[in-house]
Amino acid sequence: EPLWIRPDAPSRCTWQLGRPASESPHHHTAPAKSPKILPDILKKIGDTPMVRINKIGKKFGLKCELLAKCEFFNAGGSVKDRISLRMIEDAERDGTLKPGDTIIEPTSGNTGIGLALAAAVRGYRCIIVMPEKMSSEKVDVLRALGAEIVRTPTNARFDSPESHVGVAWRLKNEIPNSHILDQYRNASNPLAHYDTTADEILQQCDGKLDMLVASVGTGGTITGIARKLKEKCPGCRIIGVDPEGSILAEPEELNQTEQTTYEVEGIGYDFIPTVLDRTVVDKWFKSNDEEAFTFARMLIAQEGLLCGGSAGSTVAVAVKAAQELQEGQRCVVILPDSVRNYMTKFLSDRWMLQKGFLKEEDLTEKKPWWWHLRVQELGLSAPLTVLPTITCGHTIEILREKGFDQAPVVDEAGVILGMVTLGNMLSSLLAGKVQPSDQVGKVIYKQFKQIRLTDTLGRLSHILEMDHFALVVHEQIQYHSTGKSSQRQMVFGVVTAIDLLNFVAAQERDQK
């Protein structure tokens, strides 16, 4: 057995438009009618409502009807409940999964919650491996369901041993009777949507819809739904939504950006999952974080739909894509998950301010006199920076000697690579993860907040409520011999709460 199987392995699926269902090699399930009293909570997966979006479509000038398939009504709160249950049931049916076995899954959280929910009911041990950027709410729900959680670096490539995929496979090879159901490759993922989600949409719309818009992560949702719609409703256009920084969209030119990270969760990847059939997507749109969270908040405030950030991405694209539809036509959007997962993220004004998705003037509360002053007023001194090749031991000596707790790590040209902190280095040394002679590049981390000289002290204040420091950066445009230009970030300084307090105190003292 291989040590790991690539999540982007070539698909062996034989589905073709027009091929009889009787030739399918898979076990198919028909939607079942729910009894009045459910035998367990797993029976509350599927049969989610279709809700008309009344205000947002009109606000953006849509002539067509805009409908939302509300997947956050599933038992675990997301569309991923469907595939989690289906993968477990299919693994039980073919004898792969037996009582007492362990389920391991690399996930952005929602599939993990679905699997942990099913594992709690069915009696399996469950280990979820997820990147650090995923919300604390997801972690809390997983723990409450009895799952064990392993976190991995957000910026690790999918084929790196440190990625959530790599760590999951390492655990599988170490733990007896453990299984990775593997949402990236498992046919049960798109089949769950082909058999149930798509049929529900067709039934709820009486077979009449002209466009379907869905955000894409593993691709199982859009693949399964689109294949069924292509068979039953061939005139329906399928629109895929991919965040900026991901590479799922086609044509490839759409993916060209210097951005590699994004805040919206559960969609987009740096590889093409095996289950994603991009041939059934008629057109791709890219979405960005700001519009995703703005539209998610709009869905909550104006439509009462308590959905997550990827739902915002989907609707932001839908109001663009559906401009081509006329009166009497219908566009369906998939709202994948609930706001429950993001209470401390985009639902929080403070978080939105820190990330730059909300401006101070958007909030009406009274601010102190210094709130709208610029960061450049602080008069920061030149920063202490270190090269990635310097040793951890030497870096600790320098920081202690100069009285700093942290320093930016830059390359020879001064471009920011990340940050090192005294606390992080000492804990890594004590844990045996690094040696004093190791290069400081081994303990770089990139989960820090950046701020510009033109940003306000109010925004800085919000950042420092949650973080010990902020890195002050400025952009530099560099022209190359080819005539092309590129933008790079340079370090201007490091600012802490002490710097802000000293500035405010000094100004008030001078005024007296």
Rank of each mutant, 00 (worst) to 15 (best):
D510G: 02
D438H: 08
E258N: 14
H474Q: 15
E244F: 07
G458V: 10
K367G: 12
M419T: 12
R374N: 13
G493N: 15
K283P: 07
Y479V: 11
N288S: 09
G432F: 10
I239W: 06
G403E: 08
A382Y: 02
I267E: 08
P408W: 12
A431F: 02
P243S: 06
L399S: 02
D438T: 02
A506T: 13
L378Y: 06
E252S: 09
R452K: 02
K442Y: 11
K355S: 07
T389N: 13
L430V: 11
Q329R: 14
R330Y: 11
F448R: 07
G312H: 07
L453V: 11
L276H: 12
K402E: 15
S428C: 14
G393C: 14
L299F: 02
G418T: 09
H372K: 02
A322V: 04
T482L: 11
P383Y: 09
Q476W: 02
I451F: 12
M425V: 13
G240Y: 02
Q489R: 02
V495A: 14
D467M: 08
A506G: 13
V440N: 15
T260A: 07
F492K: 15
V281Q: 02
I451G: 08
E303I: 02
D510T: 10
T294H: 15
S313R: 02
P251L: 11
L325Y: 02
V264Y: 02
Y342W: 06
L358G: 06
T364M: 11
F404M: 14
A249F: 06
V491E: 09
L335C: 15
T496V: 06
Q376V: 06
Q406W: 02
V473N: 14
D242W: 02
D349N: 12
K446Y: 14
V332C: 13
F285Y: 11
Q478K: 14
V495K: 02
L358P: 05
K449Y: 13
D411G: 09
E361S: 12
M298I: 11
Q406P: 02
L422Y: 02
D349R: 02
K402C: 09
A413R: 12
R297G: 04
E508L: 14
I498V: 14
G483R: 13
V332N: 02
G432I: 14
D455H: 10
P408A: 10
V280H: 05
L335I: 02
V386W: 06
Q487M: 12
Q439V: 11
I444V: 12
V420F: 12
L299T: 15
E360L: 11
G458W: 13
Q439L: 09
E412I: 13
F285I: 15
A322Y: 02
G418L: 04
T391I: 09
T279L: 12
F448M: 06
L384C: 07
V434L: 10
M490C: 12
T391E: 15
A321F: 06
E265C: 02
N255R: 06
D270W: 02
E324N: 15
V386N: 02
E258Y: 07
V315S: 11
A497R: 14
S348A: 10
L378I: 04
Q487S: 11
Q435N: 15
V319G: 05
L373E: 13
R350G: 11
E290Y: 11
M352D: 05
V332I: 10
E475F: 09
L464W: 10
I498L: 12
A505L: 02
P436H: 13
H462N: 05
S485A: 13
V315F: 09
K355A: 06
F492C: 11
S348T: 12
M352P: 02
L347P: 05
Q329W: 05
L457P: 07
D467C: 07
R509D: 15
V386S: 08
C307F: 05
L426T: 15
V332A: 12
T294M: 06
L457V: 10
F492M: 14
T389K: 14
I463F: 14
E324K: 14
E244W: 10
K286S: 02
Q487E: 10
L399V: 08
F293S: 02
E258G: 13
T456K: 13
I451R: 10
R278C: 02
G379D: 14
I334K: 02
G328Y: 06
S287W: 02
L358A: 07
Y445W: 02
D455M: 15
V434E: 14
L500Y: 07
L500A: 13
L457F: 10
Q256S: 11
D337V: 02
L500C: 13
P243C: 02
D438V: 12
T274D: 04
